[in-house]
Simulated assay, not measured.
Amino acid sequence: MSPMPLYEQIITIALCVAGTMLTRFLPFLVFSSKKPTPPVIQYLGKALPCAIFAMLVVYCLKDVTLFSGSHGIPEAIALIVTIVLHKWKRQMMLSIAGGTVVYMILVQKIFL
């Protein structure tokens, strides 16, 4: 596979910049600060973080096999750490990061 020519690299970077800017600035263009935020958007702001967290849990546990390998023990421990951290601190990023770090430590060949 040959590397991308310079013009393709420039186009790719430009599209990434445009996409990032669009997603950052579009909400400010669509929703005026003079008008109240629509109820649907307020609902999504409350519901989506929980839904994304649940989808992340499902994605992380989809390939766990209880009858082979580590039998899902590292995943279970990391999940428990994530739940405890979230109940204790109520900070989603801390919960995700803490569970990830614990999982990564547990699955290293050195510790098994």
Results as ranks from 00 to 15, higher is better:
Met1Tyr: 07
Pro3Arg: 12
Pro3Ser: 08
Met4Val: 03
Met4Thr: 01
Pro5Gln: 02
Tyr7Gln: 10
Glu8Phe: 03
Gln9Cys: 09
Ile10Val: 09
Ile10Trp: 06
Ile10Ser: 01
Ile11Asn: 07
Ile11Ser: 10
Ile11Leu: 08
Thr12Arg: 06
Thr12Val: 05
Thr12Pro: 07
Thr12Leu: 05
Ile13Arg: 14
Ile13Asn: 12
Ala14Pro: 11
Ala14Glu: 08
Ala14Thr: 01
Leu15Phe: 11
Val17Gly: 11
Val17His: 04
Ala18Arg: 03
Gly19Asn: 06
Thr20Arg: 13
Met21Phe: 12
Thr23Ile: 11
Thr23Ser: 11
Arg24Ile: 15
Leu26Glu: 03
Leu26Thr: 08
Pro27Gly: 00
Pro27Gln: 01
Phe28Met: 10
Phe28Gln: 13
Leu29Arg: 06
Val30Gln: 08
Ser33Lys: 02
Lys34Leu: 07
Lys35Asn: 05
Lys35Pro: 04
Pro36Glu: 00
Pro36His: 00
Thr37Pro: 06
Pro38Glu: 01
Ile41Gln: 02
Ile41Ser: 02
Ile41His: 01
Ile41Met: 08
Gln42Trp: 02
Gln42Ser: 12
Gln42Arg: 12
Gln42Phe: 05
Tyr43Asn: 13
Tyr43Pro: 01
Tyr43Arg: 09
Leu44Phe: 07
Gly45Val: 03
Lys46Ala: 12
Ala47Asn: 10
Leu48Ala: 10
Leu48Lys: 09
Leu48Ile: 07
Pro49Trp: 03
Pro49Val: 01
Cys50Gln: 14
Cys50Ile: 10
Ala51Leu: 12
Ile52Trp: 07
Ile52Gly: 10
Phe53Cys: 13
Ala54Cys: 11
Met55Asn: 13
Leu56Ser: 13
Leu56Met: 15
Val57Arg: 04
Val57Trp: 07
Tyr59Ile: 15
Tyr59Ala: 13
Cys60Phe: 09
Leu61His: 10
Lys62Met: 06
Asp63Thr: 15
Thr65Asp: 10
Thr65Gly: 07
Thr65Ile: 10
Leu66Phe: 10
Leu66Ile: 01
Leu66Tyr: 04
Phe67Trp: 09
Phe67Asp: 15
Ser68Phe: 07
Ser68Gly: 08
Gly69Ser: 05
Gly69Pro: 12
Ile73Lys: 06
Ile73Asn: 04
Pro74Tyr: 05
Pro74Val: 04
Glu75Ser: 14
Ile77Val: 11
Ala78Cys: 06
Ala78Ile: 09
Leu79Ile: 11
Leu79Gly: 14
Thr82Cys: 08
Val84Met: 06
Val84Arg: 04
Leu85His: 05
Leu85Ser: 07
His86Met: 15
His86Tyr: 15
His86Thr: 13
Trp88His: 08
Lys89Met: 06
Lys89Cys: 10
Met93Val: 01
Met93Ser: 13
Leu94Lys: 11
Leu94Ser: 13
Ser95Trp: 02
Ile96Thr: 05
Ile96Trp: 03
Ala97Phe: 13
Gly99Met: 00
Gly99Asp: 04
Val102Arg: 00
Tyr103Ala: 00
Tyr103Asn: 06
Tyr103Leu: 09
Tyr103Thr: 03
Met104Lys: 09
Met104Ser: 08
Ile105Lys: 08
Gln108Ala: 07
Ile110Gly: 01
Ile110His: 13
Ile110Leu: 13
Leu112Glu: 09
